[in-house]
Amino acid sequence: MKLDLKVLQALRAGDKQADRVVPPSGFTAQLTLFAAAAMAFLAVFALALSLASGRLAQRWGDELGRTATIRIVAPLDQRAAQTEAALRILETTKGVAKARALTMEEQQELLAPWFGPDLKLDQLPVPQLIEVLEDDNGLDPAGLRLRLSAEVPGAILDDHGRWRLPLVQAASRLRLLGWVLILLITATVAAMITLAANAALSANAQVIAVLRLVGATDRYIAQAFIRRFTLRALSGAAVGTVLAMFAVLLLPGAQSDAGFLTGVRFQGWHWILPVFVPLLSGVVAFAATGAAARRTLGELS
């Protein structure tokens, strides 16, 4: 027995008479519907998680990858002169789009979470920070370090690579985890539907025997089961997907100061992607039921 385009066409077109040859009820109907709905619900969340992680990895990569910081660690009386010298070097450095020294107030604001708002920076040996924004070409950190070490002894360049990489890696792993979850969910759907289809095929052994006796081909018998399970998986997954999309919609939207947990909601055209979850369930059900039917019918004389 082959499962080819003709089977797909028959699945789409339907055959009311053929649909009726398999008894309509049975626990496998509820099992398939429930499993497909629950798995689709989880799949939508896994998809949202994966997409959010991807966005996060990209944002962290972009934001941190195009900035650098220079710390001027020098005695108070030399700090201004060294800052000026560093800025002059940056003005002539290729790949630097913009560079500016942070004001006292800005530095105070950065440190406020740790030292409180009343901190007097001019009495503390806090380094002067210079924010460097790179252009599209990016700068050469090694060359810049060499120039700074020659002309500004108190300057330390931090290109953020040391702590940017683990963050981007973590976000990428989360994204990968999301896809692994979707794969696992797909495999679980396939396993559940295979079990349900096997149970249905066993429970309908007499139906199959009668159909074969009156001249039904394996394709005809398989199609009756495939169509039923595929439609059940499609409808169950559609319900699960709609519920999950409502649940995702209820999650708080992305806020820049609220971290990762507020950005799980789909954004833009990503809202279309969950539509593919029921379709995937249908494809999985089609393949799983087809394989189960082929195996069961092949064992019959």
């Binding site: 008479q17 009726r20 040859v21 008894p23 025997a209 009668v210 009156v214 001249g215 039904a216």
Partner: peptide, 20 residues
């Protein structure tokens, strides 16, 4: 003799036509 118990007599008799 075995029939499809969920179908009525006429549907069972028509079954060879249906499957072909």
């Amino acid at each position: 003799v075995k029939f499809l118990d969920h179908l009525d007599v006429s549907e069972n008799i028509k079954l060879p036509l249906t499957v072909s």
